[in-house]
Every structure is written in C-alpha cells, then in structure tokens.
Amino acid sequence: MNDPIKDFVEQHREDFDHLEAPQFNLAGFKASLAQEPMVKKHRILNIKPASWMAAAAVLLVCTIGLWFFNSTQQTKKTEQHLALNKQNKHPKIAEKPLVKAVTQNAKQTQFAAHETTSHVKKHQSKEEVPFIPSPDQMLYTKLNDSASSSTRLAAVLAIKKSELISYDMLDRLAATIQHDGNSNVRLAALSVLEKYRQDAHVTNLLVNALNHQNDPMLQLSLVNLLGKMQNVKIDERLYALVNDPSTLEAVKDEVYQILLKENKF
C-alpha cells in the first residue's frame, strides 16, 4: 500500500537524524532531586505566624460560642421537657423534676470524668470512672431490643409505672406505636400515651399515629380513644378508614359509631 508520509520519511531520513541526544548529567539530576524537598519545606515555613494566630482566634471564638449555645439548650431541655403525671395531692411530684435534673447533671459529670481519665490514662494507674447508663437510657436500649418482644413490652410497662415522663420518651413511644413489629407492644405503648392524652403534644402524637397506623388492633384502640376526646380533628381519617375495603370490620363498626354519634355520617 502506498503511504506518502512513509515515503517522505524514507527519503529525508538523513535530515531527521542529524540531531543527537544530549549527554545525561547524572550529578545534576541528583542535585535537583535533593533540592525538591527543600523547596516544599520552604513553602510551608513561608506562612506567616499572623495567619496562625488569626485561625486560632476564630477557632477559639467558635468553640466558646458552641459551648455557650449547648449549655443554654441543655437548661431549656431540663426546664421544658418534663411532663408531670398529674396528681397535685402528693408533694413528692413537685420534687421529682429536681431529681430528674440532678440525675442529668450527674450524667454530664460522669461523662466529663470519663473523658478526663481517657486523656490522663497513660500516667495513672487503673483509676477509671465506670460509665453508668441512666435509667432512661437503659429503657431506650430495651425498647429497641429487636430480638425479644417481651423485653420491649417489659420496658413499656416500666415506663408506664413511672410517674414522670419526658417528651423525648413520649416521642419514642409514639415511634413504637408506629413501627414495632408486635401488636401487644404497640398497644402497651398506646396505653402509656393514653395516660397523658390531655397534653396537646401527646394529642398530636395520637392523631398522627392514627393517620399512619396499619395495624387493625391499634386502629381500633386509637379510634376508640380519639373518638371520645373533644376538639380532635380526625374526620378525614375516619372517612378514609370506612371507605378502605381492607379495613377490619370491627374497626369500621367503631368508626361508624363515632360518626353517627356526631351526626357526621
């Protein structure tokens, strides 16, 4: 096959070959290699100390700001996130929030002490402060035990027996009502929320639970409970339940009863 470029190269080969490669300078190459890290080092050292100081100042301000914000939030939580279990007769109820607050402070102290020991560990003998989980944390752990429904049920019953409950715990129980794999556990969690149903937040949790509930046992109990409560808007959900062919007949009967009582059907 005729290739004009190949022919041209063949004809002018001598013109291409007149240049020779320069002699390799090994000593110069080694010297350039040796110089490279020095250049990098120079660049690092080139940063002015003033920049470091500015960065440190910004970091310090951020840390102080974050610490201050956290401590304010913590105080708010302690004050707000406590719901009393009614009963004005017993003076011990008034004392309980204090006990709760002290427990939380103790928990923080324990955590701080734990951190300190981990820093000084190398220099001290075995003087470690064991981390003791609070009763709430233990209940949370049991409440999330996916292996045993009885453990979860026992945790819910323990929460039910306690006279104080935090909004955080109520939220977790609302999640249990929604997502637990066992109907008995869900119903027990509902019975805890039922105790505090006069609270606006709990009422919202109950309405939300009905709106997303797919377990007929829970639907029945929630309809029964919310149907008796005043000023709760669940009409849309009630209509949806009676119009859904998959709804259990017993649930429909309960819904019909509520709608008929209020002349909405």
């Binding site: 009614k86 004005n88 006069q198």
Partner: peptide, 13 residues
C-alpha cells in the same frame, strides 16, 4: 382510683 388527673397546666381532668 387515681386522684383527679390534671394536665400539664394543672387543670383538672
């Protein structure tokens, strides 16, 4: 029986 229950604001239920 539990005593008359109150809500978070102290109103009796």
């Amino acid at each position: 029986a539990s005593n008359p229950k109150t809500n978070a604001t102290g109103q009796p239920v």
